[in-house]
């Protein structure tokens, strides 16, 4: 009985959380209106996009290298090593680039948004902003969400290129591929939609991870302890949300 009550309570809490998040999202949509704080936008594009570049680049690079080695290990057993470049590029642009990149950005960006907004919340700075006739959704959150949606696809595109480069380098120097043949094979079966679907995913992930950071930061309470908890929640929820939406989007884009 106790166990059932526990499940019931957790379910209700979860539904309440979803409800609150939807309300929160609705308020953000309402705040996507003038005045636009351009200075805030450029600031956030720098902090969320530009400064995430090293992390995303490194993730993609190593992923590409590992992919080349692993697919080679498999394909060499039935003499299909010619498929390695195709598998590497498709895996990277369709799946691993966006997902692993976004997960890394979750750790970097969701947490910092949650910590920053959470600290502002518990020290009354957000309340103070409202008293100064400035909508905190418009000033603090909209620029971050917008920057997430805009910069993630760019980040991931750069990551894709670096990932393919990683696979290329390993294939040439370790697996003795012919360089021009590798590049030809990389392009041969790559369609526009492969890249575009990955970039659409990236934009959605950008929305998810900035939204989670903003929500948990904005709703922080109880001082430093609360900010710490919010930060953790932001990372956990944004990562799970990235994986969840990734499945949904993959299923949508899946053509067989």
């Amino acid at each position: 009985m106790n166990f059932l009550a526990q499940i019931g309570r957790s379910t209700l809490n979860f539904l309440a959380l979803l409800g609150n998040m939807s309300l929160f999202f609705f308020k953000i949509l309402k705040a996507f209106s003038p005045p636009f704080y351009t200075h805030q936008f450029t600031n956030q594009i720098l902090t969320i996009g530009y400064f995430s570049l090293p992390v995303v680049a490194m993730t993609s690079f190593f992923t590409g290298m590992v992919l080349a080695l692993q697919t080679y290990t498999g394909f060499v057993r039935f003499s299909a090593t010619e498929a390695v470049p195709t598998v590497v590029v498709l895996s990277i642009v369709r799946e691993l680039g966006p997902v692993l990149g976004a997960l890394m950005v979750c750790g970097r960006v969701s947490s910092s948004i949650a910590a920053e907004l959470g600290t502002m919340r518990v020290t009354d700075q957000i309340d103070a902003m409202m008293m100064l006739q400035t909508n905190p959704f418009r000033y603090l959150i909209v620029p971050r969400i917008f920057a997430g949606i805009v910069t993630l696809p760019i980040l991931i595109l750069v990551g894709d290129i670096i990932g393919v480069l990683g696979g290329y380098l390993v294939s040439i120097f370790r697996l003795d591929f012919n360089p021009s043949l590798y590049i030809d094979l990389t392009y041969k079966y790559l369609g526009t939609m492969d890249v575009v679907s990955g970039l659409i995913k990236a934009a959605v992930f950008g929305l998810c991870l900035t939204l989670m950071g903003a929500y948990f930061g904005f709703t922080a309470s109880r001082g430093a302890y609360g900010v710490g908890k919010s930060t953790t929640k932001a990372v956990v929820y944004s990562s799970v949300l990235v994986l969840l939406t990734n499945y949904i989007l993959t299923a949508l884009f899946f053509t067989g």
């Binding site: 009354d124 309340d127 902003m129 008293m131």
Partner: peptide, 10 residues
């Protein structure tokens, strides 16, 4: 207008 107890400067 409000002066917050903890100043609440940005």
């Amino acid at each position: 207008g409000m002066l917050f107890q903890g100043s609440a400067l940005f």
